[in-house]
Amino acid sequence: MFRARLLPALLGAAIVLTVLTVLVAAAGKPVGKSFLIILQGAIGYPRTEAFSPADAWDAVLHDMTLLVLTGLSVAIALQAGLFNIGAAGQLLAGALAAAWVGTLQGVPMHSLVALLGGMAAGALWALVPVWLKVRRGAHEVISTIMFNYIALYLTHWLVTERLKDPASDAPQTVAIAEAARLPLLRDDLLQASWGLGIAVLVALALWLVLYRTVWGYEVRATGANRDAADAAGVPTARRMVEAMLLSGALAGLAGAVEVCGTQYRFFEGFPSEYGFDGIAVALLAGNHPALTLVSGWLMSALRSGTYHLHAETGAPKEIATVLQAVLILYVAAVYLRRRRIET
């Protein structure tokens, strides 16, 4: 138990803390004080007059909402043996769709419809890559990367040329209707919405579906060894398409939640990098839906902490990016070795 589980985890934590220490020290900041500031940004304590725990939790829970959803998106695809690197593009498609649905008049259950619209757009954005994979054998990584850029330019074109709010100078859509908005978790927060509740529910539901249903078992069998699953009569191509559409829908949901819960509109430069961060969240959770709640929180706390350090001391906020890269490499090298099988 210790050698197999605890030792790699402790070693990983030690490596991350070492890299963090080096980066903070190299930026010329006092290490001990910096760690306290990071902790403050991550969990709100130690409390100071200028910075209340609510500020930290607002940022952490907001990021966690998005990272859990994009992490689940990457995880469900990986469970089926597909590397969906296109969550960023699917998130953009979902966000723009939700922003558009949110501005329509007279829609019943407006927020729900807007979220569903975002999910549909995200799934649509994943459809061609998985079709290419199943029918043409084209690697999904390549095609989802291409679709990321197509989404980037297409949404940019739409928000600057077609769907721009004519009353605004900035390239952004009209704000969505009040009825389409998700309430904030608490009135004194600025970003963290009940989208978090949705993310938690989705994570738990996926856990049940993946580990307690035949469909989930077949998805996992497909990902573990497609040939064996084929031989056992699993419709693997079907399961891959379904898992990928679900993956796209979840990334689209992340975009829709960001629109309906926090931003209330789509705008130029919409934060799509959460889609890439979802890769780290999923890998860290070993693609387990329930564990993405933990890894999603961890990544958000790390981000919020280093961002707080940036705001307080001017240390580069890219420290978080470097740490994330180190974490991915470590997890991949220790936990996710390739078996030699035909792909």
Binding site: V322, V326, I328, L329, A332
Partner: peptide, 8 residues
């Protein structure tokens, strides 16, 4: 990971 590392 290498892309992230390079960006950061």
């Amino acid at each position: 990971a290498i892309n992230l590392l390079a960006l950061g």
